[in-house]
Amino acid sequence: MIITFSILSAIAVISALLAVRLRNLVHATLTLMAFFVALAGLFILLMAEFLAAVQILVYVGAVGILILFAIMLTQQVTGNVKEHIEAHGALWGLAGATAVLLTLLLPAILKTALPLQPVVETIDPSVRALGLNLMAPYTIALQVIALLLTAALLGAVVIAISPEKSEEEKKS
């Protein structure tokens, strides 16, 4: 278990670093997807196979493909190799980011009793429980998200319809 965890985490960290560092945008996206897959593996390790499946379905199947689509619409896929972004005080930025992350995560880390694995194995990971939770206590949240997504969808359609084209159609 711990070996699998280490391998998956190593893949996740390395691919996440590569996703940030690589100059080629498509390569960066592909490594990002490798990161998503490693994360799905970690979910399976936590007995959350539904979450793993959704992770792959949503992030690799949809979000990653969307990013690739967006990249294909840009002019330059590969950044200029010689050109380097002048990063003054990169260390300060790193420290700041770490501090923010730690303040967010520390309460959770301090509260949890490690190791988690025995606890995980007692949890009922069934989809039924998840569905019942979504239907009973979290219905309003689900509805709000659905409404938001529908609004976003309609907004996209409105943006996609160009007003000039509709006038042309009226003429013809």
Binding site: F50, V54, I56
Partner: peptide, 25 residues
């Protein structure tokens, strides 16, 4: 014999899109 067979099928099936794109690009 997984509890979420169908969704796992669709999820892994969607990876093939990525492979086709990789080949094309």
């Amino acid at each position: 014999a997984v509890d979420t067979g169908v969704i796992l099928f669709f999820a892994l099936g969607s990876v093939s899109t990525l492979a086709v794109f990789m080949a094309g690009w």
